[in-house]
């Protein structure tokens, strides 16, 4: 089954082009969002309407499901590969994840309690307190469906294999040449994502998870969503930013809260021979990365790396080069850059 609309009428494109500021700012908070509020919302809804019930369930039930289970998660980051075995309990917007033996993050615990996240790190007896992620991962899928409306991506579905004994539907997003971008295996009766794979432009799998156990009727209590560790040091995203900046030897420049962007993590990364302070933000369901470093950058080369929805904006401030990368229009990135302090 393939749902790819022919190239969009240019007249419609003109209408979109006349309101460039609206692009990248619609940011509905719910996973389905105001489907009728604008061409993109309509495009999403039109594509969704033609997809089978499990896909609709996935969007409709996101943040409302109740289950426990175990899943294996693998991803690549900054040249390293991670593998975790997560034991998780999900109750709507509340969740608890424990990282089992054999995990890169063995012993850590994450509890999301609606808007508040606590993340315990046993090796340093530290609890990170921040804002819970909301619907970013499902928002990405929503964006893909929108993009399929203008032919930039292809969305197909098929019957998937049984996973943890449950029937699944495979939702595949691919580029126009058929190279997979993401694959999601959705449990047919609940809309739970049982397996997901994410690919980069080169076709390499850069992130994946798959459930190995699932219980749709778990015993859950309020205590599951509490972490009490006596003597643990409590830190927040600003503490982590300062620590990462110290490690990188960089005076940090960050997006202020007025920008609306929420800082999620900060890392000191060595790229080539340069120390780079990397900050990841969430804004309107999209992920943004702010890179800060000394020295110049080849903008032509950087621009060539802009693929699909990902755009960049570069400026200089405080003797540093800053590059903001995200799935937003360049003028929106430029606006955000004004909030860098």
């Amino acid at each position: 089954m393939e749902y790819q609309r022919p190239r969009i009428a240019l007249g419609l494109l003109m209408a979109v082009a006349l309101a460039p500021m609206a692009m990248g700012q619609h940011g509905p908070r719910g996973p389905q969002g105001p489907a009728g509020a604008g061409p993109k919302g309509r495009a999403f809804q039109e594509v969704l309407d033609r997809l089978p019930a499990p896909v609709k369930l996935m969007f409709a039930r996101f943040g409302k499901q109740r289950y426990s289970g175990q899943r294996v998660v693998e991803f690549r980051l900054d040249g390293e590969r991670y593998k975790n075995i997560e034991n998780l309990i999900v109750d709507g917007l509340r969740s608890r994840i424990e990282f089992a033996a054999g995990s890169s993050w063995y012993g850590q615990v994450i509890v999301d309690n609606r808007n508040r996240r606590t993340h315990f790190f046993p090796d340093r007896n530290e609890i990170f307190v921040g804002v819970s992620p909301r619907d970013e991962s499902i928002m990405r899928l929503r964006q893909f469906l929108q993009s399929s409306a203008n032919g930039r991506l292809k969305v197909t579905t098929d019957n998937g294999p049984d996973i943890v004994g449950r029937k699944t539907t495979l939702l595949q997003v691919a580029d126009p040449n058929g190279n997979p971008v993401q694959r999601v295996w959705i449990e047919n009766t609940t809309g739970i994502q049982l397996k997901r794979e994410i690919f980069d432009r080169a076709g390499s799998k850069i992130g994946a998870f798959e459930f190995t156990r699932l219980n749709l009727d778990p015993k859950i209590s309020d205590e599951d969503f509490v972490i009490n560790r006596r003597g643990a040091k409590v830190v927040d995203s600003q503490d982590r930013l300062r620590a990462a900046a110290r490690e990188a030897g960089i005076t940090p420049i960050a997006l202020t809260q007025d920008s609306g962007a929420l800082l999620q993590n900060s890392r000191a990364v060595k790229i080539g021979d340069r120390n780079v302070l990397t900050q990841t933000y969430i804004l309107e369901g999209r992920r943004l990365t702010l890179f800060q470093f000394k020295g110049n950058i080849d903008m032509k080369r950087l621009a060539r790396q802009e693929k699909g929805l990902i755009k960049t904006y570069r400026w200089e401030q405080g003797g540093y080069s800053l590059v903001l990368v995200g799935e937003m229009m360049p003028d929106r990135l430029a606006q955000l850059a004004k909030f860098a302090k």
């Binding site: 693998e74 975790n84 969740s95 992620p133 991962s137 994410i198 992130g207 998870f209």
Partner: peptide
């Protein structure tokens, strides 16, 4: 991608 799949 890591944040899409990893919960953390």
């Amino acid at each position: 991608a890591a944040m899409d799949v990893s919960s953390a």
